[in-house]
Simulated assay, not measured.
Amino acid sequence: MRLPEKPAILEVRHALRAWISEYAPGPELAVALSGGADSIAMTAAAAAEIRTVHALVVDHRLQDGSDVVAAQACEHALSLGCATATVLNVDVDGGGGMEAAARAARYEALDDARRGVPVLVGHTLDDQAETVLLGLARGSGGRSIWGMSPYEQPWGRPLLSVRRSVTRQACTELGINPHDDPHNSSPDFTRVRLRTEVLPLLEDVLGGGVAGALSRTANQLREDGSCLDSVASRVGARVVEESAVSVAALAGEHPSIRRRVLRTWLQEHGAKGLTDKQLRAVDDLVGRWRGQGGVAVGGGTPNARLVVRRERGRLRAGLEGTGPDDERRV
């Protein structure tokens, strides 16, 4: 299909070209197509700019008629020039909340079906701003407000500089009526309330440009954080010996580097859901040592906690039993 030379679809194509130029993903890609405006605009641009595009349409089967929506999305994909269009049916168990469960099921299905090629997803600048605000609410440090990366293999996000209004206008230019998911307007979801209540209020109070400012802030923090992570990786290679951290070797580093080293080390030992408070408590075993006891962090098993202790100048992490079938620290 030859795309119209109109402003909105051209903006989407230019954003995709810039992404391709930076990340050089290759001549074959997949797109995650929901049938909504963002993913349709992205799919149209991808089919015009990339040699071979495969559309992957996830049907969560959470609403009546979702199969019809999925079939129509496939029709759009093929009419726009995609080489293939496939519906992926998933089961959503609701564990951890419906929104999180649907996301997990969606990404698992996309990963299974992508056949080794990157997958483009249609997150926009507005989605990025919402993600940053959600990260601010968690208050777990700079990493929580990095927002989404343009490319975290295999997931590509070429539209993070494009407003949601542009993708909708692009669909109008294409003559396609996108599907509007009722979940995207339901106040039951925090992200929807950010979209419909919080961001418009911030734009009004602060005089506009808030979404763009949040996105730029995320980009800058991600770039700075990536640099610090690289430094921390080199430090970690020097201070971690036989699964233990040398306190003397790490103590002289800046706290931001220390905590990055410790975060990576803890994750390698099975830590999950690390909070800023937990990480700082572990860092205190290095930088503010007063003989304090061990620090429990997220992870472990139903009968054992993951605990970090300082012993003979080293930090060691292991399981400490809490139930009848105690698992002892290793």
Score class of each variant (00 low, 15 high):
R2V: 15
E5F: 13
E5C: 13
K6A: 12
K6F: 12
P7K: 03
P7G: 02
A8W: 02
A8M: 03
L10Q: 13
R13W: 10
R13K: 11
R13L: 08
R13V: 06
H14A: 15
A15Q: 01
L16M: 06
L16A: 09
R17F: 07
W19K: 04
I20V: 12
S21I: 15
A24L: 11
P25D: 10
E28F: 01
E28S: 14
E28C: 09
E28Y: 07
A30M: 06
V31T: 07
V31G: 05
A32E: 08
L33V: 08
L33H: 10
S34K: 06
S34I: 10
G35R: 10
G35T: 05
G36W: 01
G36P: 02
G36K: 01
G36E: 01
A37Y: 00
D38K: 00
D38G: 00
S39G: 06
S39K: 02
S39V: 03
I40F: 00
A41E: 01
A41Y: 00
A41D: 02
A41W: 01
T43L: 15
A44V: 06
A45W: 05
A46T: 08
A46F: 03
A46N: 06
A47V: 03
A48L: 10
A48C: 07
A48K: 05
I50E: 05
R51I: 14
R51Y: 12
R51V: 11
T52Y: 13
V53E: 00
H54K: 08
H54E: 11
H54N: 13
A55N: 02
L56S: 11
L56I: 07
V57H: 12
V58P: 06
H60N: 15
H60L: 14
R61A: 13
